[in-house]
């Protein structure tokens, strides 16, 4: 009897997993983002971190479908490795399943919460949590756990209801260790090593502001 129940439970779970379907709202957003072939924007970049002091940096950003985002700037800029994939190409690159985790509120706005789990081991992430604005068909928040580079959180803000691409993005990042050659670039006499040790694993936020979008797409207009 117990053996039969075990088999029954096993087959039930297999059936449930087989029956997992990709979320329709997510597919609608994916289709909207997939329609973007090219975009350009002017960006300003601010880093909010206790261990980095940097003035606002300005650059131009260019996206071509299936290509990494490129930047041009007259000055030295730090470009975040994660979080610039607004079209979420990397997230949807390999087959994935979605799990509906209900509704979460941001302010007064109810947002649909989904977990995305890749089915292919080649995917760079292991699991992602995304919050969808189903009314305006866009992603407003994501937390992505990568295989090799920790996790990062993205918050996307839009100026208009029609915008498919964000006007402001906040990327939370984490640095593990601050290693510095004391004798060359700085004052080597008054370094507080205790304070330096406390800088291990510090969090910071990158704020990107995007303006002057030029978007080419196959479908709707921004």
């Amino acid at each position: 009897m117990i053996r039969h129940l075990t088999y029954l439970t096993y087959f039930f779970f297999c059936f449930v997993l087989q029956a997992q379907e990709t979320d329709r709202d997510l597919l609608a957003i994916k289709s909207r983002l997939d329609s973007i072939d090219h975009y350009e924007a002017s960006i300003s970049l601010d880093i909010l971190a206790s261990f980095i002091k940097m003035p606002t940096k300005y650059a131009s950003m260019t996206y071509e479908k299936d290509q990494p985002v490129s930047f041009t700037s007259d000055n030295f800029i730090l470009i975040p490795k994660r979080g610039l994939d607004f079209t979420l190409t990397q997230l949807f690159q390999y087959p994935f399943i979605t799990l509906d985790r209900g509704i979460e509120k941001r302010g007064d706005k109810p947002l649909k919460v989904l977990n995305i789990i890749p089915e292919d081991d080649q995917a760079e992430y292991t699991i992602a949590k995304i919050l969808l604005d189903t009314t305006n068909r866009r992603i407003v928040e994501s937390e992505i756990n990568t295989r090799n580079e920790g996790s990062f959180k993205l918050q996307l803000y839009y100026n208009t209801r029609q915008s498919a691409l964000p006007d402001r993005v906040e990327i939370t990042f984490e640095l593990q260790k601050l290693r510095l050659p004391f004798n060359f670039f700085g004052k080597d006499t008054q370094i507080d090593r205790q304070e330096l040790r406390s800088l291990d694993e510090k969090k910071g936020t990158i704020i990107l502001r995007l303006t002057d979008y030029i978007i080419s797409r196959t479908g709707e207009k921004r």
Binding site: F76, I77, I79, K81, Q176, P181
Partner: peptide, 29 residues
């Protein structure tokens, strides 16, 4: 090489565009 060491921490999270080994750094050094 020294700049690489200095920036190694930030390399975890950032790409760099532009050169930090420049005249201003050398004047400071």
């Amino acid at each position: 090489a020294l700049i690489d060491v200095l920036m190694s921490t930030l390399k975890q999270s950032f790409y760099f565009k532009g050169d930090l080994l420049n005249g201003n750094l050398l004047v400071y050094v």
